[in-house]
Design a protein around this nucleic acid. Structure first.
Lengths: 344, 344
DNA sequence: TTTAGCACTCTCCATGTGAGAGTGCTAAAA
DNA sequence: TTTTAGCACTCTCACATGGAGAGTGCTAAA
């Protein structure tokens, strides 16, 4: 596969670079002049012709310049894009924002989505962290009004689930607290299966509560199941290749529609190496909604305790180097923040 | 203002009706044929001419049909649109969905956004309910991991705020429970001001906690401040008048950008009469982002306890009758659901 | 292997033309 | 006084035409 000459790599890189900026097909003569290349346009043309033959470039029409194919982007991301770190002052600014914000996971995730969207000028998504396998840690029941009770479930790893349940009849806060304290004791460190075993020795009220608890815990075992923070959706609409096309709408629907997003994440996220970044280009033949788009994904959090996913969705014509650096940086930053507050 | 003849009202209604369906300017002859009108196209033309003169219709070009102006839509919504209820079976289906869902305010709001978006084929928004003035009801502190503590604050009216705080040093769950129980007792029914008075007699840990509590409570006093559920954003992009235009992007940014949304809601929501529906057409000269859009808003909830806002954002060319009915119905349904679960 | 030169292709834009839709006006009819 | 038929007029839209320009592919020479 890596059968490109240095000159071909150079030209592919330059075409991609310029195309990302202009969204216009790039001509041979333009490249020579713009970069003062030490060769003639005819030579560039020959190389371009070869790259087209190999499937890395495409010609919209016989007499237009070249634009990258999906395969071209893939080669670029895999072999050519330099993994530059973000500039020091950008990193400092972002870090500062996080440390200035409220010390609260939810705020961090919101902020992460916002920063990702701003830095990449594309749509961003961040899923709330949750443990790979849910284990019970603490339960609290709080009467709110009437038969409505707030159930707060804390899992090992710090994941928090809350849900309002409506009881058959009003129960006093004292009773609720007693039930919660009892269950907290007997369920300590159990997973959903373990809790099912306890059901037998429970009264009606406890059974109701445990049903909800098990529901929450088993829901936690899947990917992308909790809250999802989105930002910058409108950034994508500003891209010229999406103006007035169906494609942008379909891509954004992917983010809006929970089931589509779950499908995407559950099928890709598990293959990401720790600390690594996954890049999907043009839907990879699987996701039709992403035909014109690319997605950059990473995991963050503390493996073994709680992890989440974050990423960016933008046009295929995106600045991969910068986006990948940003995603990796935010992912590491979130992981650091989480581990800091979790240190005993 | 109400100086239209019955025939002019009829023609204005028909033009709006047809324009909403076709997004194309409507001609006189078409109207006569389509609706078998008991007059000639020339008569219709004369009336259209008068309506144009009055500012209710517009001609894109000298020799095109007529389309409604913002003023025309306003007259229509204010005087002509019949306030039909939703069909019985639609109402039943929707109600059924709500009663089948988890008995949980959050689920209801999500579902409300989803139903609104589906019914109106436009973007929907639903803000979480919160009390008009925040009053303390219950506090719970739960150790999660390390110095991280989950603070759950329940307000009178059932509004729930949660936040994770990071303490200076680890504190045992027993201590936390004791603090929470003590504060729950002394803060009972106080507003943010009342709690400030307690600060003086508190130790360092309690001060930290109360700071957060007051922050949450004062944030609750504003409109639209809590969670916002959005759905159907991509519906708007499908409308022909938005294909490839800047306008859709700017309108959706209004929903995405919290500060813009807060501004919109805080300036309009307070004027809505109870049970009523507010319709903003074309930004009403104030919101430039909404130039091509209309917004239908209503309040829901239990006045005095907790209320929220819900609504629909779509193209100006929207089916007002149906949208208004839907918004009103969902608003009433949410209110009913809330009052049912809150009955002591 | 690279390059200069050149014919060729295709888009884009400006221009022009005819068909069609819809109007506004006028004068006759109700 | 109101309504209508008739008709000229206007404007858009779709389509065809014709350079200008950009960029290519090929060939033959360096």
């Amino acid at each position: 596969m890596n059968d490109l000459t240095d000159r071909q790599k150079l030209i592919l890189t330059l075409v991609i670079h310029e195309y990302i900026k202009s969204a216009q097909p790039i001509g041979s003569q333009y490249l020579v002049e713009r970069f003062k290349l030490d060769m003639s346009s005819a030579t560039v043309r020959n190389e371009m012709s070869a790259l087209t033959e190999m499937g890395y470039l495409r010609q919209p029409h016989t007499s237009a310049g070249r634009s990258p194919t999906e395969e071209g982007y893939r080669y670029f991301v895999g072999n050519l894009a330099q993994r530059s770190d973000l500039p020091e002052n950008t990193r400092r600014t972002i870090t500062h924002q996080f440390y200035q914000s409220r010390q609260d996971v939810e705020q961090w995730l919101r902020l992460a989505a916002s920063v990702l969207a701003y830095q990449s000028r594309a749509a961003s998504l961040v899923t709330a962290p949750h443990p790979e396998q849910a284990r019970f840690k603490h339960l609290e029941l709080i009467a709110t009004r009437g038969r409505q009770v707030l159930l707060v479930l804390v899992l090992v790893g710090g994941d928090i689930q809350q849900q309002i349940i409506t009881l058959a009849e009003p129960v006093s806060q004292e009773q609720l607290s007693a039930v919660a304290a009892h269950l907290t004791q007997v369920c300590q460190n159990l997973d959903a299966e373990g809790i099912r075993a306890i059901l037998a020795q429970s009264d009606a009220l406890e059974k109701d509560v445990l049903d909800v608890v098990m529901g929450q815990m088993s829901r936690t075992d899947r990917f992308a199941t909790g809250d999802v923070y989105l930002d910058g959706l409108t950034n994508v609409l500003a891209e010229p290749e999406f103006s007035g096309s169906e494609d942008a709408r379909r891509a954004l629907r992917l983010l809006e529609e929970r089931s589509l997003l779950d499908n995407l994440l559950s099928r890709t996220v598990m293959t990401i190496s720790p600390g690594g970044v996954q890049v999907l280009i043009g839907g990879e033949g699987t996701w039709d909604e992403l035909r014109q788009c690319s997605v950059v994904l990473a995991r963050y959090g503390l493996p073994g305790f709680a992890t989440g996913t974050l990423g960016v969705l933008g046009p295929m014509r995106m600045s991969y180097g910068h986006t990948i650096s940003t995603v990796r940086f935010i992912s590491a930053l979130l992981s650091d923040l989480m581990s800091e507050t979790l240190v005993d």
